[in-house]
């Protein structure tokens, strides 16, 4: 009987070694380990054995069963592995074929840069203030220290609805509205659409965008203006940028300054973009004119402030090297998709 068991083991091992399919594996299992299999039939014949032999043979038969079961299991997983590999081989694809792309939409480049600017100022504690685009003459001019017949009105060719209502020429009227409504400390930026009756060409658009800012508090100084705008410029144009403040004139600020930033194309040595000057004009700024504070209901003897303003289109055109302002309002998707 021992011999019988040994030969079953040997046969089964042999069969497993030449295994090629799952079906064969199952056949082997049935043949040797099944209810009517070889091992079972050997065990059935155990009755003819002596008391002493029975446990020995029984143990041996069990060992062989366990042994074969392990072998079967191993063979099974090997077969699985083989089949997987086979399948993988058959599933080879050409990975250089085009992908199935799901395109995101794009933000308009003006929004893109506006968001960047907003983030910089929000980081410095600024809020975003908004106001009407159709604005009272009072807020657009008078309260900004631009009385009727002031030459500065010529600089801003204005669209009129009637005598008292204009399409705002700047977002500065928002500053007055904010001052009227809130108490210092005030730190706001006011981005938005503005209008000037300029005929359309590569550098002029009757609709464009500005971002202005206003800070009002006790003890706000020219030094604060410089410091704040320097941080802004360095965050927008990189920490290597230099800025300079030039005296200028705006009716609503005094002292007034224009801020230039070192040319980001040439670094300040002079090139075509900065017209050889090494500097590029970025924004207008100044300490808020005491009259403007008064118009906003704020006592200039107690409070002071600074304001600044910049044209968004100009910034975006410089940033991306866009030469024609009309592209912003044509909304050609071949343009929009580039940003």
């Amino acid at each position: 009987m021992k011999q019988q068991l040994e030969s079953i083991k040997g046969e089964a091992e042999q069969a497993l070694a030449n295994l090629s399919s799952m079906q064969e594996l199952e056949n082997i299992r049935i043949k040797y380990l099944g209810k009517k299999g070889a091992l079972t039939s050997v065990l059935r014949g155990m009755g003819s054995l002596s008391k002493e032999e029975r446990p020995i043979i029984g143990q041996m038969a069990n060992e062989i069963r366990c042994y074969l079961e392990d072998k079967l299991e191993a063979a099974k997983s090997m077969l699985h592995q083989k089949q997987k590999e086979e399948k993988l081989k058959q599933e080879v694809i050409d990975v250089t074929m085009p992908g199935k792309r799901k395109s995101l939409g794009k933000k308009h480049p003006l929004s893109l840069v506006l968001n960047e600017l907003e983030d910089i100022f929000i980081g410095m504690g600024f809020e975003i203030a908004e106001g009407p685009e159709l604005e009272l003459d009072y807020y657009n001019f008078e309260a900004l220290n631009i009385p009727e017949n002031h030459p500065a009105r010529d600089d801003q060719d204005t669209f009129y609805i009637n005598e008292n209502i204009v399409l705002r020429t700047a977002t500065s009227p928002v500053q007055i509205r904010v001052m009227e409504k809130s108490k210092p400390p005030i730190r706001i930026i006011s981005p938005g659409r503005v209008y000037r009756s300029d005929a359309v060409d590569a550098t002029h658009s009757p609709v464009f965008h500005q971002l202005e800012g206003l800070v009002v508090d006790k003890n706000v100084t020219m030094g604060d203006l410089k410091g704040t705008l320097e941080i802004f410029a360095k965050r927008l144009f990189g920490s290597q940028s230099k800025v300079r403040f030039r005296p200028h004139y705006f009716p609503f600020t005094e002292p007034s300054a224009e801020m230039d930033v070192s040319c980001f194309a040439c670094g300040g040595s002079g090139c075509r973009i900065c017209k050889g000057e090494g500097w590029i004009e970025i924004l207008g700024s100044g300490l808020v004119h005491p009259k403007v504070l008064q118009y906003g209901g704020i006592d200039p003897e107690v409070y002071s402030g600074f304001a600044f303003g910049m044209g968004l289109e100009r910034m975006v055109m410089m940033k991306y090297g866009i030469k024609d302002i009309r592209l912003f309002y044509e909304n050609d998707i071949r343009f929009l998709r580039q940003f």
Binding site: I122, G123, E127, R187, M222, K226, G227, E230, I231
Partner: peptide, 20 residues
């Protein structure tokens, strides 16, 4: 000279900032 005015950071009461 504007250049000779020292740049300073805003002091005073902090403001919340942010979007509404």
């Amino acid at each position: 000279g504007y250049d000779n005015i020292e740049s300073t950071l805003l002091s005073g009461e902090a403001t919340l900032g942010g979007k509404n």
